[in-house]
């Protein structure tokens, strides 16, 4: 068994007095696809936001690609550059064109020459099939197109890990498919992915493991087939019976 690329040990996190994450233990190996599901407020988003330290944890260790995340971590930017993230609300930069959204970070963070960055960006945009929209602004695109652009933007940094925080929850049903297709293609390419989603179809298709969370705890962690075929805990059974 190879060394896990993400390793979380006994992690606890509080928002003020409220404990959002309780004793989280998680190991993710390279090239694995993990789907995290669970009811609202169960701490799924907080968990993956901790992985690139958009949220700080108070106890326990998080080790990403050999780097431990803590207040002492100096080059947090370097680690974040290795960990791409896609958000529920897309969070494109509205004052920049689609192409500039994709090239901004490669040029200024990775010091890539402008021309090379643009070629890379167009390549990534082509993979999510919006290269024809490259000169438009985010406000002129549909939600699905914006989210695909957000995926391309994250991929332009050539990350080792991709985090998805409910990428389809803010989309019309019609647009969900185009975004999921882009994610499935990415998964087939061998990317390490952690996906918070309610799309169980997607989970069945690509996930290696499914994690079920409730009230800040990991209730169940199992292989995808196992998870859907015979869930162990009652809470998981109840959840699955409601959303399937």
């Amino acid at each position: 068994m190879s060394d896990p690329i993400i390793k979380i040990q006994n992690m606890n996190k509080w928002f003020g007095d409220f404990q959002v994450l309780k004793n989280i233990n998680l190991e993710v190996e390279a090239n694995k696809k993990i789907v995290v599901c669970g009811p609202s407020g169960s701490g799924k988003s907080t968990l993956i936001r901790c992985i690139n330290r958009l949220e700080e944890h108070q106890e326990g260790d998080i080790i990403v690609d050999g780097n431990e995340l803590s207040e002492k971590t100096k080059d947090i930017e370097k680690i974040r550059a290795e960990v791409g993230m896609v958000f529920q609300q897309f969070n494109l930069f509205p004052h920049l064109s689609i192409l500039d959204n994709c090239t901004l970070a490669p040029i200024w963070v990775k010091k890539m020459p402008k021309k090379e960055a643009q070629e890379l960006a167009l390549d990534q945009l082509k993979k999510v099939q919006i290269d024809d929209q490259a000169n438009k602004f985010p406000g002129q695109l549909s939600g699905g197109q914006q989210q695909r652009c957000a995926i391309a933007r994250a991929l332009c940094m050539q990350p080792k890990i991709m985090l998805f925080d409910e990428p389809t929850s803010a989309l019309d049903p019609e647009m969900i498919k185009e975004v999921l297709d882009a994610m499935v293609n990415l998964a087939k390419g061998g990317m390490t992915m952690i996906v918070v989603t309610h799309e169980m179809g997607f989970a069945k298709e690509v996930a290696d493991e499914v994690i079920f969370m409730d009230e800040g705890m990991i209730i169940e962690k199992a292989d995808t087939k196992e998870f859907f075929a015979n869930p162990k805990s009652d809470r998981t059974k109840l959840f699955l019976s409601q959303i399937l």
């Binding site: 974040r80 290795e82 960990v83 993230m85 509205p94 901004l104 963070v109």
Partner: peptide, 25 residues
């Protein structure tokens, strides 16, 4: 807040985030 999150998640530090993403808007 998403604008800050997005900029940070792309590996931008404080100054790059403010100069290219936050202040222009």
């Amino acid at each position: 807040r998403g604008q800050y999150d997005a900029a940070k998640s792309l590996g931008m530090g404080y100054w790059k985030m403010h100069i290219f993403v936050i202040l222009p808007q």
